[in-house]
Write a protein that binds this DNA or RNA. Structure first.
Lengths: 202, 202
DNA sequence: CCACTCAGTAGAACAGATTCTATTAAGACG
DNA sequence: CGTCTTAATAGAATCTGTTCTACTGAGTGG
C-alpha cells in the first residue's frame, strides 16, 4: 500500500533514536507530568543533543503528542481484547470511555498531557479523529480492528458527528476531573445522560 | 447580600489600577493576540511595575481570564437586547451559540484566548459555568437577566447536564475553527445535529 | 576506497513568564 | 502630626522553551 523506501543503516538508527526519545519522555511525564518533561532533560537522558531532539520533535507539543499516541495504542488493544458488552450503543460507548478514563486517571499527569495536547495542538493531531473513530466502531458494534480499515466511516454523516460530539464531551469531563471539580462517578453519570439521547438512533 | 467592606482611598485606587490593567491587556490582545499581550508590556503601558501586575494577576492566565470575562459581559448584554426567537430549545441554543461564534471570530485572537482560558485555567474560572447558565436560560426560555438570579438552576439536574454538554461541544467546535479545520457553516450544522437530540426534551 | 553530505553534537544565545530583592512612599490610625 | 504597615517600584535574576552557530563524524554513492 505505502511505498517502501529503501532502508539503510541511517533510517534504522533514526527509528531507534526516535523511539528512545519518546520512551524517555514518557518516563519523565509519568512522574512529574508535562512540566517534568523538560526538553533539556529529555535530550540528556535520551542521550541526544538538544538540537537533535528539536529535529525530531519541532516543539514540545509534538513530543507530548507522540507520547500520548502510544498510550492510545494501548487503549485500542485493550478494547479489542475485551470489547464492551452492553446492549445499547450508548452503553457501549460510555463503557469504553469510562475504561479509558480510569486508565488515564491512574496516571493523572499523563492524562493532563493527553487532554491538553488534544486541545492545544496546532500539531496535526489525528488523535481526536482516532478517538472518534474508535468510539464510532464501538457504538456501531463494528469490531475494533487494529489498523485495518474495516469500514472507513463517512466523517460527515450525522452519526459520525454525534459520536464526535460525545468525544468532545468526554474530553471536557476529563478536564473537570483533572481540575478536581468532579469525580469519576459523576462523570459516568453525566456521560450516560448525554450519550443516551445522542446515540439513541444507533 | 454581600458584606460591604468599608472602602478607603486605598481600595479605590486598587480598583482603578486593576481596571486600567485589564483594559491595557485587552487592547494589546485585540491586536496581536495573547502573545502580543506580554506581561512586561502590559505592565509598562498600564503604568505599573511588573511586580504589581503579578500581585493583581498571579499568572498570565488570570489576566487572560479577566479580559475574556469582560467580553462575556458584552455577549450577555447582546443576548438580552436581542433574544433568540426560534421555536425549539435546540434552535434557540444554536442561535445563541452561533451569534457568539460569529462575534468571537471577528477577533480570532481573543477567541483563541477565550477557548484556551476555558480549557487550561487552573484558575477558578466560572467562565464555563456562566456560559452554561446563559445557555440554560436561553434553552428553557427564561429571559436572560443581567446578574439577577431569576431561578438558580439545579446544576445536577439532567437538563443542566445536557446543556453543559452542548457547551462542551461548542467549545470544541470553536477550537476546530481556530485550527482551520472547519468553517462556520459546518459548525452550525454540527451544532444543530448535536443540539437536536440533546435538547429534545426541553 | 574516497569525497561529500547532512544528521548529530555541544553549548551559547534568545525570549518571555515568573520570582526575588531592596527601596520607596501612600495612607490608615492613634 | 508621627508611626507603621503594606502596596508599589525598579530592575536584576531565574527558569524553560526555542533558535542558532560552529564543528564533527557516520554512512552513502560513485
Amino acid at each position: 500500500m505505502a511505498v517502501q523506501a529503501p532502508i539503510g543503516m541511517r533510517m534504522r538508527n533514526q527509528n531507534q533514536r526516535r523511539k528512545r526519545i519518546v520512551q524517555t519522555a514518557a518516563a519523565l511525564a509519568l512522574r512529574g507530568g508535562v512540566e517534568a518533561m523538560q526538553m533539556r532533560t529529555v535530550a540528556e537522558r535520551a542521550g541526544v543533543a538538544l538540537g537533535t531532539l528539536y529535529r525530531y520533535f519541532p516543539s514540545k507539543m509534538d513530543l507530548v503528542v507522540a507520547v500520548v499516541t502510544e498510550e492510545l495504542d494501548l487503549l485500542e488493544t485493550s478494547i479489542s481484547r475485551r470489547p464492551p458488552n452492553a446492549e445499547t450503543a450508548a452503553g457501549r460507548a460510555v463503557d469504553v470511555l469510562m475504561r479509558a478514563t480510569r486508565g488515564l486517571m491512574r496516571e493523572p499527569e499523563l492524562a493532563d498531557a493527553l487532554v491538553r495536547s488534544l486541545i492545544m495542538a496546532e500539531v496535526k493531531t489525528e488523535l481526536g479523529a482516532r478517538i472518534t473513530d474508535l468510539l464510532y466502531r464501538v457504538a456501531t458494534g463494528t469490531p475494533v480492528a487494529g489498523n485495518e480499515e474495516s469500514a472507513p466511516p463517512d466523517r460527515d454523516a450525522d452519526d459520525y458527528v454525534l459520536v464526535g460530539s460525545l468525544a468532545s464531551i468526554w474530553i471536557f469531563e476529563l478536564l473537570e476531573i483533572l481540575k478536581g471539580h468532579r469525580d469519576m462517578e459523576q462523570v459516568q453519570q453525566r456521560l450516560e445522560v448525554a450519550a443516551e439521547p445522542l446515540l439513541a438512533g444507533f
